[in-house]
Design a protein around this nucleic acid. Structure first.
Lengths: 208, 208, 208, 208
DNA sequence: AATGAATGAGGGTTCATTCAT
DNA sequence: CATGAATGAACCCTCATTCAT
């Protein structure tokens, strides 16, 4: 195998650059979480990152750009955790799969609360493009849920319902739980929370 | 009952003042709904209300104050529509009561979409005090739901669950539906939506 | 004659507004003259005008806008002083007319040196639109001169020459004199300067 | 003649250094011409010169300094092309000498339009020292012209006139033509333009 | 009570310059 | 010599709030 010839300094520089970027992203995440998009000031971000004003603009084109990067990172991460339920032969039970997927999702949010706060709060019309991307993400999530419901209906597992609307409601349900977990300390193991969330969605609150 | 002696002019003046206040609140609601708290400018509000800059500050201490007033109004209105389920003898079925209560709530949101938009978006920490009040309101709503769940469990109607957490999830579920209805046109009668929402909460998505 | 009913306060307000505007324009003129378009800072302008930062933007949309207003004012003023030579019967001698026109022009520049400085210096690419307007103005002036030359040629008064080029040269000649007068004190009466300028243009430097 | 003992490496180094300097000057010239002094950014210059940010400051103290160097180079070049008219016995006709001198000058400008643009636009007081040097240059040019006029008057060739003022006007005239030629393509041979310029200056626009 | 001109702190962004590598 | 990441002063502009009329 041919070794590509990259000078060691370049590698160092690149990783230093990536480190700085992360440092800024981290500070920005915190500030956006605390103050919302508009309330967040570059001042607060650079103070948090302990860098000079100009340095910020060496790594991000604008305030909007950091916000977008933050969102993109989170969305990528989330997408990787949302898996369509495999209903093929030999697949694990749908409920188990759901439990894994949702569990991993909750885990992610609880592990990075500021990021969760950014994602949850940013209904507040940040700047055009970012808002659109976030809306698209939620639409995507809703659509995954709606599709699962339709599949379930076709298989006779799910009650007849308005898929889009029910998806919106279920997404809200997840958000409600996430908010709850993020706001309070995770007083109980994520696994339990996940199981309860799934039970609620599947069989409701009434006794059978 | 003793009549307090208030000159008629004062009464007129007071109601005129109240009218002005409402006029400003209405304009502000629209602006906050369109642009979010930070995006809303006093300029836009006074243009909408067709008053002079200074007049605004005759009726509200600050931008924060209008926002707070708006929130308070909405919360008062909402509180009146959230009724505890009456489980006494001779009461209507809990499900019917729930249907009335939620229906009225959805009705309210759909009827005043700008206000709904303000309520839904205002997670973005506009200002400390208002945020606190909103949080308190949500906590209150959650607590009403949690209590109902506990009552239901005591009566053997509701499955065993973590009431607080389940309440948070259910509140999210309602928010999800509200968002859905407010965003899209109310493509279907509120009654149907309400029923579906309740079914979802009570018996989940699975077929029995 | 019907008296239009304008409240006296409005008249006062309007003239106050116009006064403020002028005050700002004056300060801006000075600053632009001293530092050029890019070198001029809003800071310097508002210090000169002794107003607050925000007040500036109550009267002008942007830095570019003040510059444009300054330019427009000057160009309007100058246009009114540049008259086409009347060659009709009974008209005064072309040379006399020219003398009046150029004299009035020089007068204007000498009377308002900062403005002259702005006009003369602003070749330095200010902002797109203003630059275009200035260029258009110079083109206009050149074209007036070129037309006069062509008329003169048709009448057999003017030597055969490349009108556009000669016009460019003559415009430069006027600019040279203006610069000279504006830079130095007007050591001699404008009338003399004008006469000399015209002689130079008409018969050159050589003895006949 | 004693040979100073300079190692060959130093010579190479020195010429390499001079080459780099030129490379930067060239890029800077282009940028200053395109964007004016203030509009020119170090960024644009180093991109044009294909060097690193720091390297620039190895060759020039500051932005001001490159601009000054550019101006100085141009002025040196121009000085070499402006020759005093030789009125001694056996000299060529003054007009022919003038034609050579001016022709060479126009040639220079047309050949290096960016440089011409820099020279012409730099009235906009970029920075004190450079402006002073440019003003000095123009004063020098004016003084050469004024002296020629005085000589001409003494010889009875030139009409009586205010030499300084007339020199200013003539300088403006040349600038006008240069601007014209630089802006437009040289639609006609420089020689023709030169001749017309000289005719204009010598005998004016009127027919004799 | 109503007005709107005036304010100035603070917003995001740019860019000439420095200095450790 | 050469580099380019880092700096921070300065830029233009916005907008919630005040106050004389």
């Amino acid at each position: 195998m041919a070794r590509t010839n990259v000078p060691v300094e370049d590698v160092r520089a690149a990783s230093a650059r990536a480190g700085r970027r992360l440092q800024i992203l981290d500070a920005a995440k915190q500030v956006f979480a605390d103050a919302g998009y508009h309330g967040a000031s570059i001042n607060a971000i650079i103070e948090g990152a302990e860098i000079a004003r100009g340095t910020f603009y060496l790594y991000f084109e604008s305030k909007e750009a950091v916000f977008g990067a933050l969102l993109d990172g989170a969305m990528t991460e989330l997408r990787s955790r949302i898996v369509r339920i495999d209903t093929g032969p030999g697949a694990r039970s749908p409920k188990d799969q759901l439990e894994d997927s949702l569990g991993s999702l909750l885990q992610f949010f609880v592990a990075d609360r500021p990021l969760a706060a950014v994602l949850l709060s940013s209904a507040s019309t940040p700047d055009a493009e970012a808002a659109a991307r976030l809306a698209a993400f939620y639409a995507e999530a809703r659509s995954v849920i709606a599709l699962s419901l339709e599949t379930g209906m076709a298989l006779g597992l799910v009650r007849r319902c308005h898929p889009e609307r029910t998806a919106a409601a279920l997404l809200g349900l997840v958000r409600g739980i996430v908010e709850h977990c993020v706001t309070r300390g995770a007083d109980q193991p994520i696994q339990d929370v996940t199981r309860e969330l799934i039970d609620l969605a599947l069989v409701g609150v009434l006794v059978r």
